[in-house]
Amino acid sequence: MNNQKILVAGLGSTGISILRYLDHIGASQVAAYDEQLTAERQAELATLFPLFPALSGSLKTALADRTTLILSPGISRRQPEIREFEQRGGVVTGDVAILADLLRHQRDQIIAITGSNGKTTTTSLVGHLCQQSGLDTVVAGNIGTPVLDAWLQRQGKSADVWVLELSSFQLETTPCLAAAAAACLNISEDHLNRYDDLLDYARTKDQIFNGCRTQILNADDPFCRAMHRP
């Protein structure tokens, strides 16, 4: 990423974790963006990341000279400004996709869990079982710790398994997770202000299985059954 002109959009906990990662790897052509930034927040960002300018206002203007956009989950990839950016050749990605690429090089295994309900409980349980089995285990994602913060905390040390709770928002920018195992627990009406309909929402959840070796599906849920891949 060192040769790319990067914009990190959305400066909540995930966006800040992305900036920490980019600072760690020495990326220099990075800007941070949020639609609104108070003077206090601007000063805080300048202290944390003095080499990364903080932008606000028009996303289209912020993207004008960028080649890569790293989206926080709270920002929809379907915004007109982002679609226009992609149409002119811009790359859109997210923190989970960056982690997946890092873990492929480290040969760490991923167990990924999504669903409308129960994913935090299931992720916690799977993480506990892995730990009790003696595996060096990292639990991260939508459950609390942003995935790149979890990676930085390990200081480059590989783990046996990463157990990730992933929302549909995170999966929008994760084209190929390549998990050792992935599960979709259920699909129910949720986030329909962001998706066209329930089927559109389910298709986004289905991205968790791209490159996956083992699928775990809820056979009682028709949307989950439809995700089966031979």
Rank of each mutant, 00 (worst) to 15 (best):
80 P>G: 00
53 P>C: 14
226 A>H: 13
99 L>P: 02
191 H>V: 07
103 L>D: 05
84 E>V: 10
36 Q>N: 11
105 H>P: 03
7 L>C: 15
22 L>T: 02
161 V>N: 13
90 G>S: 07
160 D>F: 07
7 L>E: 11
215 Q>K: 04
99 L>S: 06
114 T>D: 01
209 F>C: 06
153 Q>M: 09
142 N>F: 02
55 L>D: 03
52 F>T: 00
73 P>F: 10
210 N>C: 13
112 A>T: 15
56 S>G: 00
118 G>E: 01
228 H>K: 11
171 L>S: 13
23 D>L: 11
6 I>F: 06
190 D>M: 03
115 G>P: 11
19 L>C: 13
54 A>K: 02
31 A>T: 03
216 I>T: 12
155 Q>F: 00
50 P>Q: 12
176 C>S: 06
3 N>A: 14
61 T>R: 00
72 S>Y: 07
197 D>C: 09
179 A>Y: 05
149 D>W: 04
112 A>D: 06
226 A>V: 00
193 N>R: 09
165 E>G: 14
82 I>T: 09
72 S>V: 03
6 I>C: 15
89 G>N: 08
123 T>H: 13
130 C>I: 01
131 Q>Y: 03
87 Q>T: 12
14 T>L: 08
44 E>N: 02
188 S>Q: 11
75 I>P: 00
214 T>H: 06
213 R>N: 10
181 A>M: 11
80 P>W: 04
132 Q>W: 04
220 D>R: 03
197 D>A: 11
86 E>N: 06
165 E>I: 13
107 R>Y: 00
144 G>E: 00
59 L>K: 10
222 P>Q: 05
28 S>D: 08
218 N>C: 01
173 T>L: 14
51 L>S: 15
92 V>M: 03
151 W>A: 12
160 D>H: 11
113 I>C: 11
171 L>W: 07
157 K>P: 04
95 D>R: 13
3 N>T: 14
194 R>K: 09
127 G>T: 00
163 V>E: 03
35 E>Y: 02
221 D>H: 01
40 E>Q: 06
40 E>C: 05
184 C>V: 15
118 G>R: 07
77 R>W: 01
